[in-house]
């Protein structure tokens, strides 16, 4: 009999795992809590380092889906139970399926920047997040701040909700550094006369072509990188944002006014997924993300046979890393069901 796999979460990891599993001859049900598939990528205008369109990327992934895959949207998974040699997966709306294997591709949630109270997100109108900026880019509208003015200066704050034990997140979210560089360049392309600043602790340009993009940001776009973590932001009379940071390479505090401040919100493990992993008895390590059976040898396996992981539910990843991880998870499932 054809084996059945339930994949939970239809972002890039879930879509790509499902496509591969279906191509390998399995029956696949892809369940998604939202009305549409695509996850965070739906809201992301352009991807680093190539500036490929988020929308086109999702469309290309969806195009690869075999028509045999059953896509169950608007269904929030509320129960997973291991029964003998199969799993019963059930949703909030009464949906239920039996599965021979389950792939968790539940992804991340964006750090809620309100929690960094001192940065003023939700209070000062010209403090926005990287996700808000992508929405603004995607809207195709003229690039203006909340006063309807072209900002003369734009600041990017790295590591918001990442590498910060004050918000209980010790981990690096990996993608924010390169996203800031990408978005800084996009801002400069829209407003060439603007001065753009990145406030960073370390620049982690780990991926291929990332360092090149960083160099381009400096050389071609004159984006300034100031090494220091933002301590606070406030608003002046005209709605500009005044930021305080230490220029750690000069060893002096620095004060600068920007017309728009962008917070590079990091990745967190979503509490809703935590409920599922608790139900399964899966280990989350101190950073909250799901711990694979072995980080080097079995990165898609969990300690429960038949439960697999792919994408950012096991830690922050770029889209390309997520895609590779999704394909590798499909192979791991095939191996298990052989």
């Amino acid at each position: 009999m054809q084996k059945h796999i339930v994949v939970i979460g239809a972002g890039p990891a879930g879509l790509e795992s499902s496509a591969n599993l279906s191509n390998l001859g399995f029956r696949v049900t892809l369940v998604e809590k939202e009305e549409v598939t695509g996850g965070h990528l739906n809201k992301w205008h352009a991807l680093f380092p190539s500036l490929a369109s988020g929308k086109h990327t999702i469309e290309a992934i969806v195009k690869g889906l075999n028509p045999g895959i059953k896509i169950q949207t608007a269904t929030k998974v509320t129960g997973i139970e291991a029964v003998n040699d199969y799993f019963t997966v059930s949703g909030h709306n009464g949906w239920q399926e039996k599965a021979d294997a389950v792939v968790l591709t539940t992804g991340f949630q964006l750090f809620d920047s309100h929690r960094k109270e001192e940065y003023g997100y939700g209070i000062y109108e010209n403090v926005i997040t990287s996700a808000d900026l992508e929405k603004q880019f995607a809207s195709g509208k003229e690039f203006v701040n909340r006063q309807g003015k072209k900002p003369e200066r734009v600041g990017f704050v790295h590591c918001v909700g990442s590498r910060d034990e004050k918000v209980n997140n010790l981990h690096c979210s990996k993608v924010c550094c390169i996203t800031a560089v990408k978005q800084a360049i996009e801002v400069k392309q829209m407003i060439p006369e603007a001065d753009v600043f990145c406030f960073y602790m370390d620049l982690r340009m780990f991926g291929r072509h990332y360092e090149e993009l960083y160099k381009q940001a400096q050389e071609k776009y004159n984006i300034q990188f100031i090494r220091g973590r933002l301590s606070e932001s406030t608003e002046d009379k005209d709605g500009n944002i005044i930021v305080k940071v230490e220029d750690t390479l000069l060893g002096k505090p620095l004060r600068i006014k920007v017309g728009l401040l962008v917070l590079m919100a990091g990745m967190e493990f979503p509490p809703a997924t935590k409920a599922l992993t608790n139900m399964l008895g899966l280990k989350n390590v101190s950073d909250g993300f799901i711990q694979p059976l072995d980080e080097v040898l079995h990165s898609n396996l969990t300690e429960i046979p038949g439960v697999f992981i792919a994408g950012t539910c096991s830690g922050p990843k770029s889209v390309s890393d997520t895609m590779a991880d999704a394909r590798s998870a499909a192979l791991a499932v095939a191996e298990y069901l052989k």
């Binding site: 309100h114 109270e117 003023g120 997100y121 939700g122 209070i123 000062y124 109108e125 608003e235």
Partner: peptide, 10 residues
């Protein structure tokens, strides 16, 4: 300045 933002924190 959005006062609602402050009210949420308060």
């Amino acid at each position: 300045m959005k006062l609602e933002g402050k009210r949420l924190i308060w």
